[in-house]
Design a protein around this nucleic acid. Structure first.
Length: 342
DNA sequence: TATTCGTGGAA
DNA sequence: TTTCCAAGAAT
């Protein structure tokens, strides 16, 4: 049997992507090692998120906080504001917890073993393996969505996800080499991202074409098998956008846990039937509606505006000069845009 | 084991 | 317009 990893590594040496957090295979061979901080930061940002969406955030974060100690010393609100728009905000909260744990409990130095990494906040099975492999060249078995797709096609795994994970894990372990395990992991992910794509995979130029069971029957796109998803329910609520005569904006920090947890936003009712009151009494003007879709529901918000200098029961006025809509989650930025245009 | 948790681009 | 989905983790 042909060594799949050797084929893959040869392909990676020629066709790897150049990414801001990555050390190229040539530079790696010359002895250069990736910065564990940058590897970790990129891996957390890339969880369920595209490279295109991450790149700008990665540059801004590393420019502002160049190492894990600097990040550990940052203010919570500053990090959350910088993360705004990237989504899955629990990642940002855990990012800070992780940086502070490394600073306080590991002397500011990243641990190198998969088990130690796995124990840190926000680092699960995938990220622990990825950092161990990419930053420290350990033969960890790295399985992300790309790898699941590549493996399930390569071995034509009929079991649907997520039930197929153990079998995929065994297959991935069988492919993981002791030489260049970090490049192997990145090669698997690059193959999944550029050749073995979910739709219209480029099987004709795939380095693993000869070994691929799904390609052999011309059915690559039907793998991995997946259970059908539930439909998204509709939810609705009201959003209050209050501006003081001096231009200050009424904002409210959301609870630390749950949807958009720890983020700043405009006061709203609950979105699940909870009927929170308006932040203050005012003559409300209806500006229109905002539609937004989260991971598991659709939301329609009725946007009410008023000018007032009363004492709000919820939230606090933020001076106009200190307000930036870019630091809000997207649903709030949409509400702001609706009022700015209207 | 199943649910919760964002966003924007592609088809 | 709607659906799918991209380097998952926490609970």
């Amino acid at each position: 049997m042909t060594d799949l990893s050797a084929l893959l590594i040869a392909w990676y040496d020629r066709h790897h992507r150049d990414l801001p957090w990555r050390v190229s295979p040539a530079a790696h061979a010359a002895g250069q090692r990736p910065d564990p901080y940058r590897v970790w930061l990129s891996e957390v940002m890339l969880q369920q998120t595209t490279v295109a969406a991450v790149t700008g955030y990665f540059h801004r974060f590393t420019a502002r906080w160049p190492d894990v100690t600097a990040l550990a010393e940052a203010e919570d609100a500053e990090v959350m504001a910088e993360w705004a728009g990237l989504g899955y905000y629990a990642r940002a909260r855990n990012l800070l917890r992780c940086a502070r744990a490394i600073s306080a409990e590991h002397g500011g130095v990243f641990p190198q073993t998969e088990a130690e990494l796995r124990a840190l906040p926000g680092i699960g099975p995938y990220t622990a393996a990825a950092v161990a492999a990419i930053a420290f060249d350990q033969p960890a078995v790295v399985v992300d969505g790309n790898v699941e797709r590549v493996i399930s096609r390569l071995f034509r795994i009929e079991t649907p996800l997520p039930r197929a994970k153990p079998e995929i894990g065994r297959r991935a372990a069988g492919m993981t080499p002791s030489m260049r395990p970090g490049d192997h992991a990145q090669a698997m992910m690059d193959l999944g991202a550029t050749i073995c794509t979910p739709r219209n995979p480029a099987c004709a130029i795939c380095p693993l074409r000869e070994a691929c069971a799904a390609q052999a029957v011309g059915d690559a796109t039907s793998f991995p098998r997946k259970a059908p998803r539930a439909a998204k329910p509709e939810r609705e609520g009201t959003l209050w956008l209050v501006q003081r005569p001096d231009g200050a904006i009424l904002l409210e920090e959301r609870p630390a846990k749950g949807l958009l947890g720890g983020m700043s936003g405009f006061p709203t009712t609950g979105w699940d039937g909870t009927d929170l009151p308006a932040p203050l009494a005012a003559e409300w003007q209806t500006m229109g509606e905002v539609r937004h879709t989260f991971t598991h529901f659709h939301l329609t918000l009725t946007v009410l505006t008023a000018t007032s200098q009363g004492n709000p029961q919820r939230g606090a006025f933020v001076p106009h000069a200190a307000f930036s809509p870019a630091n809000l989650p997207t649903v709030f930025r949409k509400a702001w845009d609706l009022c700015a245009k209207g």
